[in-house]
């Protein structure tokens, strides 16, 4: 039985974007302050779970039609690729590279290949969390 949940659905529409933005902020903040790929991924998955609670699994799957197994696999591939790229340069595995660039709006910005590794972690965490919740949720 589905009661009138207009309040939760309206609130969700606003809150999901805030959570997603916060997830991305936490993800990028990881190098200098608490945060990183793992918590960022969990927060993003939390936003998706909130959507599933407010609406239902079929609706959310229709809005975001992705296979989360592939998301997790892509994340693993990105992380492994970042770490293994050092093999091509003849330095030990997992050696990271970094550089500073001047971007028009942001000014002096540091680029570090660890961010790419973290992006992989982010995707794996989102993928795995969503696989677990979807599988249990769809189980009759």
């Amino acid at each position: 039985m589905r009661s009138n949940d207009v309040i939760i659905q309206t609130a969700t529409k606003a809150v999901v974007f805030i959570i997603l933005l916060f997830a991305i902020y936490i993800f990028f903040a990881g190098h200098y302050s608490p945060g990183g790929g793992f918590v960022g991924g969990l927060l993003a998955a939390g936003a998706l779970v909130l959507l599933m609670l407010a609406f239902d699994i079929e609706t959310v799957n229709r809005i975001i039609p992705v296979d989360y197994v592939q998301i997790a696999a892509a994340g693993l591939l990105i992380s492994l690729g970042t770490a293994a790229a050092s093999i091509l340069f003849g330095v030990p595995f997992f050696t990271h590279a970094h550089t500073y660039v001047y971007l028009p709006l942001l000014g002096k910005t540091s680029f570090h290949s660890a961010t790419l590794f973290d992006l992989g972690v982010f995707l794996v965490v989102v993928g795995v969390t969503m696989i677990i919740i979807q599988t249990i949720g769809e189980d009759e």
Binding site: V69, L80, F93
Partner: peptide, 20 residues
């Protein structure tokens, strides 16, 4: 220099590819 890692990287890489 990375030779000790190769026998564990190959199965891992292909396991990830097989997930697709």
């Amino acid at each position: 220099i990375n030779l000790p890692l190769i026998p564990l990287l190959i199965p891992m890489l292909f396991a990830v590819i097989l997930l697709f």
